[in-house]
Design a protein around this nucleic acid. Structure first.
Lengths: 358, 358
DNA sequence: CTGAAAGCGCTTACAG
DNA sequence: CTGAAAGCGCTTACAG
């Protein structure tokens, strides 16, 4: 494999000049440059990032660690759309001429130290630490010396992090429902210990308050268990309870629950959306677009979160964080309106066909 | 940051001895070893993979390239479960003490050369090239000099590849349906130009032949378009046509289509599975487990394919491919049986509750 | 605008 | 079982 010396010799210059042409770190005479470029092409020269890293002490590598990519699914379903998170991060990192190294804990927390060791051997310049769902985490103490941004999680030490705006997402959804003529809005929530649960319920209340509508607490029921065992039984009962409070729309904690609710409502002979509107959360397109009718859902903005996190990390590394920049950032997202929600009031503007609003 | 020299000095040995302790490439006296290990710990020593790579000329890096992770979704839905593929590959590669570098073409083919350049700069030892669906590809000529294994795709040059056994998967599904008392089995297929379509239809026919059942060709209809536009209209018509042939079960080209069929059948007042059984393909658990009733589906074994591909690549790199090893390997998978399929014949053993068979 | 020398931190090749 | 010397392929620091 050709080295910088081979190129230098072929072009009749010094290695340092070849280096200058590659890196553009100093002016090079046009003719010299062309000779070098020709030599590089002729020799099929590919610079060695190992040599570059060793000498410059900068690897150009960013590590992303996640148990998300492959949880064991014992307690949680695969959070597959988090791959959008990878995608968003990679775009930003690629633009900064760096490379993303991805490590997967396979859902086994005890593998994380090994993965971090690999990152260290590769001298990563910073780390993106991704959680499979919005939660609090505790970082291994060994991570304290590296620039790090948490994604979809936060810690007590106020490590910089990027979070979804769960409160705002549910607010936007419920606000939109009210604007479409709904007044009795049921909410089948996540298990109460989940961070997202409290935030979204708060958004649900804020939307009601803003429109001066009193909340009937019977409309809010837990619709999912921490473990998926007997999930359908629980959901069936929760659905029973909210139906007694006579809602016109049922908000579900996520799209998977909405999918189950579709089945249960149809078993009861309830037509969607004519007799009951349904909404989800996450906007997993694999689900939302293929359900019939299409599912209205609050977007969980994974790609944007990944991009924002990468951005923040690069600024941490570059030492260019803005003065008043908060450690915790929340990413907002619109609602994807589809046909599962009926606009009830004929006087309300027809907003109902596949449109997004913020 | 501590170097091997710092460790050597602290332990009172030569750098080469430290190297031997780390790599286990030669016997080291027990006492010496302990002194070295203690010094490494005390100095918080982390070896530099850049230095190691440069001197040894082996990077320990495997590149995975995929447009899959982030297609633009113009023509195809996100093939998100392919993340299982990453997971399967990473497990095997991690076991070989190597590190996986993942690059994402973002669905833009013109970005691939840049990504490959990055891989080359990092001196990857081999490449896994992943397609978003079972298809033929043409590799860039520049890839000819690197060990490479295609995953979910193949090329005319017979590059080693790992493919799903689509024929066998559909055979297993239809065979299982027949054993459960179904004789009139509808099949809503993929668009005909798709590689998987022909293979699966062949599996459908083989299962019928094996049981001596003549195939009514009206039962086979194309249920999806290459582009998702007007997909529901097409599916509605295709469903109409197969229903006229009076099936007892409808096989769908994939789980997403099955999800749409659930909705359409229910609009017609057809109960699943009491009046009509339904089966899918892919076993996307995010869909199959949350539909009501749970969807029977042929498994698309992404994790196994990733692992097999990594395995094959490592053998290519190590020069330890078996003598008669074929270039193309097909990965078989079972069917995940769930409640969407009714066992029709009371005399048939009850096989019907959430079991897997090969 | 260009170059000569040194060094990043390991492992190789050799010697004992 | 252990070590001294050299070199992997770049960029740094300096000089002109």
């Amino acid at each position: 494999m050709a080295t910088i010396y081979d190129v230098a010799k072929a072009a009749g210059v010094s290695p340092k000049t070849v280096s200058r042409v590659m890196n553009g770190d100093a002016p090079v005479n046009q003719a010299t440059r062309e000779a070098v470029e020709q030599a590089m092409l002729a020799l099929n020269y590919v610079p060695s990032s190992a040599a570059r890293t060793m000498r410059s002490q900068r690897s150009g590598l960013i590590g992303m660690i996640t148990g998300a990519i492959s949880t064991t699914h014992q307690f949680e379903d695969a959070g597959l759309p988090e791959i959008y998170l990878v995608q968003g991060a990679q775009r930003v990192i690629g633009q900064s001429n760096r490379t993303l190294l991805i490590a997967d804990s396979g859902g086994q927390a005890d593998r994380i130290p090994t993965l971090l060791q690999t990152f260290r051997e590769h001298r990563v310049e910073g780390i993106l630490y991704v959680a499979e769902y919005h939660r609090e985490v505790t970082l291994p103490a060994s991570l304290r010396d590296l620039p790090i941004v948490l994604v979809n999680c936060f810690d007590a030490a106020e490590t910089p992090c990027i979070l979804p705006d769960d409160e705002g997402g549910q607010f936007t959804l419920v606000d939109g429902l009210i604007r479409r003529g709904h007044q009795r809005i049921a909410y089948l929530t996540l298990p109460e210990h989940q961070v997202a649960c409290g935030l979204r319920v708060a958004g649900y209340h804020r939307a009601h308050a803003q429109h001066g509508i009193a909340v009937d607490e019977r409309l809010i029921q837990v619709g999912a268990l921490p473990s998926p065992t007997h999930e359908f039984d629980l959901l069936w009962d929760a659905l029973d309870r909210v139906l007694k409070a006579e809602p016109t729309v049922i908000c579900c904690a996520n799209d998977k629950m909405a999918m189950r609710v579709y089945g249960l409502l149809r078993d009861r002979g309830v037509a969607i959306p004519q007799q009951m509107s349904v909404a989800g959360y996450d906007d997993y397109r694999m689900i939302a677009e293929h359900l019939h009718p299409g599912l209205t859902s609050a977007v969980l903005p994974y790609a944007a979160m990944g991009a924002r996190a990468a951005d923040k990390l690069l600024r941490l590394i570059g030492g260019s964080t803005k003065p008043g920049e908060p450690n915790r950032e929340h990413v907002s997202a619109p609602v994807a309106w589809r046909d599962s929600v009926l606009t009830r009031d004929a006087n309300v503007t027809q907003l109902n066909s596949r449109r997004r609003e913020t």
